[in-house]
Design a binder for these strands. Sequence first.
DNA 1: AAATCCAACAACCGCGATCAG
DNA 2: ACTGATCGCGGTTGTTGGATT
Length: 247
Amino acid sequence: MVKAPFYDKNGLKKGAWIPEEDDKLRSFIQRYGHSNWYKLPKLAGLSRCGKSCRMRWLNYLQPGVKRGNFTNEEEDLIIKLHEEAGNKWSMIAKHLPGRTDNEIKNHWHTHLKKHVKQNPKTSEVKEQFNETSQCKAKKNRESESGSLHASASSHQSLESSPLSTELSSSELFSLSYDHPPVTGINWAEEDCLTSFETFEDTFGDFWTEPFVAGNMNIPVEFPISPYILYHDDTDSFDKVMQELPKN
DNA sequence: AAATCCAACAACCGCGATCAG
DNA sequence: ACTGATCGCGGTTGTTGGATT
């Protein structure tokens, strides 16, 4: 289902990510943050372009990213928001905690678009869509016991979110820019402590376990505080870069 | 059982916006 | 003000597994 790995003319690896690459990227970002995506792959010892690393982190490795089936509430919200905003996937993603724009976009193209085309009225769309998709979804949920938690938590998040209730388009837009919903991942500097707690919950014993450089080409003796991870500013990142051995 | 079709989704690409020097 | 580097978004492609014939 994924593109086979290959190297382009610049020696950069393309295609599917392997677990070792994921580990390298995850470990590096957890330790040093990601102030500069274009320098990151080199520092992390990855033969990938910055864009690819960014995509991989944001869509799959970032803590809090939900995988698995979309709930009816999420689908309804996507349809609603799409009616209001069109293909503004990043904006739509802000209203779906744990979902990424790429995942929403994919879900739209593969599941929701065709149903909306068939019947442009949201309520009817949902009704019709639920009938056709629920059997499939049920089947998938049964096979993916792990995603049950994700679905449940998603439901919870949506219920606690101000957007879970009916909103006018103006309300939606004011919320999207003035009162972004809490996603559990907030990399903003002022929220670093809150993020830390959430992050810690997500990663469990990551902070209590000694860091293992493992297959990373980063010296273990780095005197870098974990705070850098959340204090996502260029100075800190540059500091890391200065301290890294020059190749 | 083999061939074909199709849905799903991970990943890439292009381009405009933003930022820093 | 200009330019190059970087970032982020949205569109599209390519591969694979499951369903169907």
